[in-house]
Design a protein around this nucleic acid. Structure first.
Lengths: 345, 345
DNA sequence: TTGTACGCGTTATCAT
DNA sequence: ATGATAACGCGTACAA
């Protein structure tokens, strides 16, 4: 027993009025009598009428769907951003379609294209690590599809973005280590081709300068966001004549690896070496030795990206508002770098 | 400079053929000459033609979108399932719309309704903890929208589900503890109203019975999936005359709390007490004392749920295939319960 | 093999 | 305030 979908046409027949009137009544068109408006509303619910959003979308060109492209959806950082976007957009009637780029430019391009083809009303994305070209972005913009970048952005006139102040994050992390009494601070950097990692690095250098600590390039090691990478970094650093007394890692996994290797070498944390990570991954606070880390407030980042989008589409469609939001990082100080705590033990 | 979307009509005009022919050629209709088919295909790409999926959807009633409803998308378990679904469905031309229930029945109902209204081709869902009624599910089924449950299912004729064999998981976890020499095994249960937690509990009891260990209800404590809950459980258990020598927790967070409290009491793990958790949350393997846990293979769960869905929609639409997939749990043995490891230290 | 004509459900434009 | 009608872009039954 399949129920035939009822349309405004069915309602119009039952009420002996035109479908146009029904449509107008349903959409609260001002030039409709209150009488018929109420009547239509009543019978609509009675007949269990539901708008066909497809027909609506075909007609007015808006689907109330937005697309999100992230490298992987099951990374704590990205899934939290998506959560933020979803929770902000859902009450506004939007649905969220998610896609993964797997950090591959090719996938990113393809996903973006099929999203455009699906007629989404906007796109949220964090560009893939391997993306070199920007034709796909340009194409979306030419079709007047608003794009909001988060975390990893690209610069385009009229395009908004929501990112973390990575420079400041690098600065306060380093400053904190200096305040703990460290002055041979190593930096485990990420892929320096990415702006976010360059900014963290710059923040690190800036803090050193501010506190008159000489920058030593031997203390900077490029790592990937893997545990092994952190282990290797410590191995390399501890071959130095003059060993570090602190490590600021641009990623939590490398920080974890570093800690493992330090323990392995019977080096005491935080007494001998202080460690600070980045991202505030859930595991950092659950460790027996909880790891100090920079929180990027991903859920907030998502919420704000969504708000930026809403402003854009609710305002005058013809002008595009370019909004660059930069969020403040928050340092969660935990035992891996908190020497003051030791006094109380 | 806004580019007007080009339609099959534009192509037909340029080629002096009818739009119908263009449509057929594009859809590889067999009764079209190879000549025109190739010609249409060529000019289509030349003119940069893109199908309007909205119009298509309105016409044939299929959107190629599916909806997923989970409690929270940024939980490792759920986001991994979503990843599995997305990766399986995307190559088949589907897009994935995600919604959150926040473990509230009311949200779940509302999300399901708006999804149905959006004309999705299918729904994947894990029911909320608080869901008591099933009218919303029944409604979806009446509209012939296929539903696939994962992890937390409801029983409906003709409805497929993909779940973990929680009974077996409970059994092997307990059996493992017995093999480590434990015989006063406590169980931190989850919300017993949920089938999954009942099954884990039953598996636990079954293993005890199989190995002739008396079941002691004082050793079973209902916990929530929070760290504090695990701390409290240990506090309560250690008031017993006859204390446990092992803990099988139905959740990793409670297991973590239990471990914290045990350490607090200077109880050695795994020498004095062995601990096993559930879910294989990422943090379990990163701990200084890595936690033994049951892996639910969430990504695989998602992939299989997607496959079940595809079978359903690709086959004859009129018959609904009911498929109940039960995945085997995998026990990851780590230091929190591995006494054999101690010998090598 | 190809063309004609209509419908999917809605909204917008023109009348009345 | 309401009605008639066209249009959004596509697919398809029917005709040729």
């Amino acid at each position: 027993m399949k129920k035939d979908k009822i349309t405004i046409y069915d309602i119009s027949k039952k009420l002996n009025i035109s479908a146009a009137t029904v449509s107008r009544a349903l959409n609260n068109n001002p030039k409709i009598s209150e009488k018929t408006r109420a009547l239509v509303a009543k019978t609509a619910t009675e007949m269990n009428y539901k708008q066909n959003r497809l027909a609506q979308a075909l007609k007015n060109g808006r689907t109330n769907n937005v697309g999100i492209i992230v490298p992987y959806i099951n990374r704590s950082f990205f899934s939290s951003i998506i959560r933020g976007i979803e929770e902000e957009l859902n009450p506004n009637g939007y649905h969220v379609i998610i896609c993964q780029s797997h950090e591959e430019e090719e996938n990113e391009i393809q996903q973006l294209n099929t999203l455009l083809n699906t007629q989404i009303d906007g796109i949220f994305m964090s560009v893939s690590k391997t993306t070199q070209t920007t034709d796909h972005i340009r194409k979306a913009l030419e079709e007047n599809t608003p794009i909001v970048f988060f975390d990893r952005k690209l610069e385009f006139p009229g395009v908004s973005s929501v990112v973390l102040d990575d420079f400041k994050a690098g600065f306060i992390a380093t400053e904190h280590l200096i305040n703990e009494g460290c002055n041979r601070i190593a930096h485990l950097s990420g892929d320096i081709n990415l702006e976010i990692y360059r900014n963290r690095f710059e923040g690190y250098k800036s803090a050193l300068k501010e506190y008159n600590i000489a920058y030593d390039k031997n203390l900077v090691i490029q790592t990937s966001s893997k545990i092994e990478s952190g282990i290797q970094a410590v191995t390399q650093l501890w071959e130095l004549e003059n060993k570090p007394d602190a490590i600021f890692s641009a990623g939590d996994y490398a920080a974890l690896g570093a800690i493992q290797e330090l323990k392995n070498r019977k080096i005491k944390i935080p007494e001998d070496v202080c460690v600070v990570g980045f991202s505030n991954e859930p595991f950092t606070k659950y460790m027996e030795l909880p790891i100090t880390s920079i929180d990027q407030t991903p859920q907030m980042m998502g919420k704000i990206a969504a708000q930026v989008f809403l402003e854009q589409v609710k305002g005058n469609q013809t002008i595009s508002i370019e909004k660059k939001v930069v969020l403040a990082p928050e340092l969660f100080i935990r035992e891996s770098s908190n020497r003051k705590l030791l006094k109380f033990k």
